[in-house]
Every structure is written in C-alpha cells, then in structure tokens.
C-alpha cells in the first residue's frame, strides 16, 4: 500500500512515544549514568569513565554466563524450530479439532513463568515428580538439583515444553495461509511429501519463521524466572544465565556501576542480533 506523507501523523504516535520514552528512556539514562560513575552514597559519586566496562568485560562471571547463554539459546533454536514446524504440520487444518488442538497447545504459553518453574520443580523431582520418578525407574540416575548435566537438560526440556508451542502456532498460522491450490498443483505434479514441504510449505513459512527465530532468540536470551525457580541457577552456577547474573549483581550485591555496565552490554548484544533479524523481516515483507 502506498502511504501518504504527513508529519501530522506524529500526533497519533505521540502517546506511545511519551509512554515508552517514560518507561524506557529515563531508566536507560539512569543506567548509563551509573555505568560511568562510582557511587558511595547520596552526593558522593565519582566519574570513572569506562572503568566499569573494562572490569565487567574481564569478569569471568559475565564471560561464563554469556557462553552458557549462547549455548542455551542455540540449543533452544535448534530444537524448538524444527519441532515446532513438525507439530504445526501435524495439526488438523480446521474445524473443532483444529480449535481444540490450538488451545491445548497454547496452554503452556499462558502459564505465569514462575509457575512454569514450579510445575517443573515438582514434575522433575525424583521423589514426588512423575518425570524424575519415571527416569529413575528406567534405571537412569537422575537428579536435577545435584547433577550439573541433569539440571541443564531439565532447564532445556522445560524451555522446549514451554515455548515450542509458540513456534508451532506461528508455523500453523503460516501454513493456514497457503492456498489449497498449491497443494492441488503439487499433487498433480506428483510431488513427494518432501518436495511439497521443501518447495511449497517451507518457502511460504519464511516470514513466520523469521519471527519465530527472533522471538525465541530474544526471549531465551532474557530467560530468568523459570530456571531461577527450578534450579536457582545451580548446581554451582551451571544454569545461571545472563539475566540472573545481572540481577544478582544489581540487587543481591548492589554493585551498581558494574551492573549498569553489564546491562548496557547485555542490551547492546540483544539489540544488535535483533536488528539483524528485524532487517531480515522487513526485507521479507518487501519481497511479498
């Protein structure tokens, strides 16, 4: 659609602008302010330049949790995207069965994140949880509160449980938008199931998949509450991701300067990667 040039449209955007500016710009300025000062108390602040940034970049905790974060987000995408596509392909196309599937699959998305943590905290325990008990019954020694690998896998499994539905629903809506004529033509052309997926469904899922990857990357990169409730970041710091490291630093230790510098670096990483995705989306929109 050709848009009209009219700067008066700013009046319509103004409320959003003011609201978001209030909620985002002021806090962001505060963060920037902290990140370049050392504050001892009211009126006792010293300008320290980039010192906090240098210190935080050299901080082992940040580096470790950053690596953990990337590995985690990587696995999240690697598992959830194909699984989500698979689920979407299996969902009934319409009717009451379709609606029912949609709602049941969406349930994990509607559960408060701390409750997600709680559910898995209970579910995965060896003594009172079905999952932990079941795994132990199979003769596999499993204890997510004690074993690093178990804890890590449990957090990953929880995230897969929690968020694959989002990918599935996105892909489902993408699949629904493909006209029936394409399937008919493919059937006539004797395309195999694989060819239908590869040449008809996948290309048309491109734009929703970009959104799915974007959302899943962002949200997994900010994950906090669920592992916090489930494992508390442990054992040791094996499931401590960026947000938790930051929160501990800012609120737990009240290490304001370093926390602020951390925040900015964190934000910039997310922003940079998201910008790449965003460019990809608008590009895809244009091609349509």
């Amino acid at each position: 659609m050709n848009k009209i040039s009219d700067n008066r449209a700013w009046w319509l955007v103004l409320p959003v602008f003011l609201l978001v500016a209030f909620s985002a710009l002021i806090p962001l300025m505060t963060v920037v302010n902290y990140s370049v000062q050392d504050i001892f108390g009211p009126g006792q602040a010293f300008f320290v330049g980039t010192e906090w940034f240098k210190s935080i970049l050299a901080d082992q905790r940040l580096q470790d949790s950053l690596i953990r974060q990337f590995v985690f987000s990587g696995f999240v995408l690697l598992i959830q995207i194909p699984l989500g596509i698979g689920v979407a392909l299996m969902m009934p196309k319409s009717g009451i069965k379709g609606s029912l599937c949609l709602i049941l699959i969406a349930i994990p998305l509607l559960i408060p994140w701390n409750v997600v943590g709680t559910i898995w905290q209970i579910f995965a325990r060896g003594d009172i949880g079905l999952f932990g008990w079941g795994i132990n019954q199979l003769g596999i020694d499993y204890n997510y509160t004690g074993d690093t690998l178990d804890a890590w896998l449990t957090v990953l499994l929880m995230d897969v449980w929690h968020w694959t539905p989002l990918v599935a629903l996105l892909c489902y809506s993408g699949l629904r938008a493909i006209p029936e004529a394409f399937y008919q033509a493919a059937e006539i052309d004797r395309a195999s199931k694989w060819a239908v997926f590869r040449y008809i469904q996948l290309p048309r899922l491109k734009s929703v998949l970009i959104i799915a990857v974007l959302l899943r990357f962002m949200d997994s990169f900010m994950i906090y509450i669920e592992p916090f409730v489930l494992t508390g970041g442990g054992p040791g710091s094996s499931t401590t991701f960026l947000s938790q490291t930051l929160t501990t630093m800012a609120i737990g230790q009240f290490d304001l300067g370093r926390a602020a510098a951390f925040s900015l670096i964190y934000f910039l990483i997310v922003l940079l990667i998201s910008w790449l995705f965003f460019t990809a989306i608008t590009q895809a929109d244009k091609e349509k």
């Binding site: 806090p27 963060v31 960026l242 930051l246 800012a250 609120i251 602020a260 964190y266 922003l271």
Partner: peptide, 14 residues
C-alpha cells in the same frame, strides 16, 4: 520494537 527486545533485568533497578 527494541524495547520489546530489552531484557527486563536491565530495567529492574532503574
């Protein structure tokens, strides 16, 4: 949109 992408933890203290 970048605000949708901002980790809430960043804004906690401010």
């Amino acid at each position: 949109l970048s605000n949708r992408m901002a980790p809430p933890a960043v804004f906690l203290l401010p």
